[in-house]
Amino acid sequence: MQLEARSISKRYGEEQWLFRNANAALQTGEVVGLLGPSGCGKSTFCRILAGYDSSTEGEVMLDGERLPSKGYRPVQLIFQHPERAVNPRWKAGAIMNEGWQPDGSMLESLEINPEWLNRWPSELSGGELQRICIARALAPHTRFILADEMTTMLDAITQARIWKTVLELAASRQMGLMVVSHDRHLIDRICTRVIDFRSLG
């Protein structure tokens, strides 16, 4: 399967173009790093690729077809700040099970303590909450995961743990991964291919 950005451009209203004619393709089974300075539009590009935002020009294609607009989406985005990506009035268990029901082995591999599921988001640390968000996005029909600075706010140990699990799952399920990060060392360590965002458009 292939996720493809076909000459995507974006601007808000009549402002300057954030980026123009960005082309990129991501295959299932690949781990691609996306590098670029802050404020260059990487995050917006990711949101468009995942169908969270619309492009001003150009199209996103999944195996030659448009992204579905109903049902569980095969392209999932994981945000930098998990506390914003969850409803503060829901308990962690309800949050995690919103799209599907992760089984015990999934919880185990993500090192999610079942006790957390009965707590409110404000009672969990950033790393714990991010694991809940990752479990939520890892339904069997997920084909691509876009990780936008997924572990930037976490300490090194938590970061290494989370990536180990995600990479193993991605490999065993043949998912495609896009890793957006400013950390060159992280990208060098885990990615099979690196894209410089400035070279896209």
Binding site: A50, G51, Y52, K70, G71, Y72, R73, Q76, L77, F79, H81, R84, A85, V86, N87, E98, G99, W100, R136
Partner: peptide, 13 residues
């Protein structure tokens, strides 16, 4: 427009 509502839609809700 909050992230958790956008996510919910991506969960097929």
């Amino acid at each position: 427009s909050s992230e958790f509502v956008l996510v919910s839609r991506h969960m097929g809700r």
